[in-house]
Design a binder for these strands. Sequence first.
DNA 1: CCATATCGTCAAGAAAGTTGACTACCTTGT
DNA 2: ACAAGGTAGTCAACTTTCTTGACGATATGG
Lengths: 135, 135
Amino acid sequence: MDRVHEQLATAGFGDVRPAHGFVFQYLSFHKTATAVGIGEHLGITKQAAVQLIDELTKRGYVERRPHPTDRRARAISLTARGWECVERVVAAWADIEREWATLIGPDRLGKLHDDLATLTAATSGGRPVPLRPLW
Amino acid sequence: MDRVHEQLATAGFGDVRPAHGFVFQYLSFHKTATAVGIGEHLGITKQAAVQLIDELTKRGYVERRPHPTDRRARAISLTARGWECVERVVAAWADIEREWATLIGPDRLGKLHDDLATLTAATSGGRPVPLRPLW
DNA sequence: CCATATCGTCAAGAAAGTTGACTACCTTGT
DNA sequence: ACAAGGTAGTCAACTTTCTTGACGATATGG
């Protein structure tokens, strides 16, 4: 994680914190997200989620628009710059995984991934675990 | 980590946070520790380390005594209750590892451990990584 | 169409860390 | 021996990040 953010900083995305990454991840798969949904995904309150969204909006990674079907809500989505940042993260992770493959071999790396998936699925009962950058 | 602390709570150790665990770990291997040493181990300032020590002292897990060789310093060590808690943690981890072994097999679990050790050693340059419960 | 639930917001505050300055003590080189 | 600089702990002020609680506006379901 630290290495990804070092990479991002050199690519001009030095103003995103690790916690923001989890918002990005959620927005990559939910085109019209809400603050409540993001909060649940991260395991934080909606107020804290709004604060993250505010920061990302101010920095141009995210935008709020009227929600298409719910006039209480605001539809949150990535801007062009947000998507650029996501692409950078994907590329950085790919680099890191390639390096891992050279260290322990692609076969072992694949098994490592599968085993970790098995263990986390078992301890969380199969449901998705709220991701938090904090214990 | 969450499961260990659930186990601890049912065993009467409900007043320790995850961050405290890293202090316990350090004290298990350093009989006369100092606040600065603990701070370096966790990657936090000495002031923050002192605060953790204060909490653990108030709750009876840790005690401060005059340092044997340095009159500026205070020697920090686990009390009997502190050691009881450590034993509980060790037992809880052993339970969890046994469960992991049944899930993916002892052989794969051993390789998982070795591979993770290889990867972390490579990315940290071999030096110990300061442990933090926070990104 | 009314009761209840949900989305976002405002405000206050708690948790856990940081920075900076200070005293007391240690250590090292001359 | 001792001056000079480094280190351990402490005090105080502050920052960051998250929480709790209350609220208006809108949605939804019997």
